[in-house]
Amino acid sequence: MSAEHEVRSPKLPPRWFIRAAWAVHRGIYKVFRGRVGLWAPRAGKWGTCRLSTVGRRTGQERSVILGYLEDGPNLYTLAMNGWGEGEPAWWLNLQAQPDVTVETVQGRRPVRGRAAVGEERARLWQIWQGIDKDLDAFAARRSTETAVVILEPRA
């Protein structure tokens, strides 16, 4: 393919804007005490959840709002760091201590996090591709593979 006909990666907003949007979303959630800021996935759309982990260095609770989809009783998300380089802190924390809490519009529940591998990862990635047609182009911006993170219910 010639340079004239190269497929261009979709544009991302500047990093400062992505980080500001995350802060605003967390702020809205906090101001409204969780009544606003989370939504369930629906046909062709991902939902948002609040994941609470334990900081691997500080031992303090850390929370982040993530996009997610459902796969039976499990939730899953992408450890994408806003499509920037490096792993998101929540994913590093989850790997260090996989027993965490997730909050959805249905309520809070204890879950155990893990990375999807092999066929499971490919299947879940393909489902997310059905929602976001630019998923592979965004993922190609990162030098490492984007983890598909499974959040399984625990007793």
Rank of each mutant, 00 (worst) to 15 (best):
T48G: 03
R56G: 12
C49T: 02
P13W: 04
A115R: 14
H25V: 10
V7N: 08
Q106I: 12
R8G: 07
W46T: 09
W91A: 06
Q97D: 10
P88G: 08
A147T: 08
V149Q: 00
W46C: 02
N93A: 10
G27D: 01
T146S: 07
W16C: 07
L135W: 04
E70M: 03
V102H: 03
G72L: 08
P13Y: 06
Q129P: 01
T77G: 05
A155C: 05
K45E: 10
G27R: 11
R19Y: 01
R26V: 01
I131H: 07
R62A: 11
R123Q: 12
E70H: 04
P41R: 09
L151N: 02
W83I: 00
G44V: 10
G34S: 07
N81K: 00
V36H: 04
V36Y: 02
A3F: 07
G55S: 10
V54Y: 05
V102S: 05
R56P: 03
S63H: 10
F32N: 05
P98H: 11
E87Q: 15
L69N: 04
K133T: 12
G118Q: 00
K30M: 14
G44A: 14
R57P: 04
W125S: 09
K11R: 13
R141T: 02
V31N: 01
R57C: 08
E152T: 15
W125T: 05
I28P: 06
A96D: 06
P73Y: 12
V7M: 10
R35H: 14
G118S: 05
D132N: 08
A43V: 05
L92A: 06
A140R: 11
I131S: 07
T104D: 00
E119T: 13
R56E: 06
T104K: 00
R19S: 00
A116I: 13
S143Y: 07
Q129M: 04
R112H: 09
V102N: 01
N81M: 07
A20E: 09
P14A: 14
V148H: 02
P13S: 06
P110S: 15
R42I: 02
G47T: 08
G37N: 03
A155N: 05
S9I: 14
W46Y: 04
F17W: 11
A137L: 08
G82M: 06
R114I: 14
G84Y: 12
D71C: 03
P88I: 09
L92F: 03
V54P: 05
L12Q: 14
A122P: 01
W16T: 11
W39T: 11
W46A: 10
V117R: 14
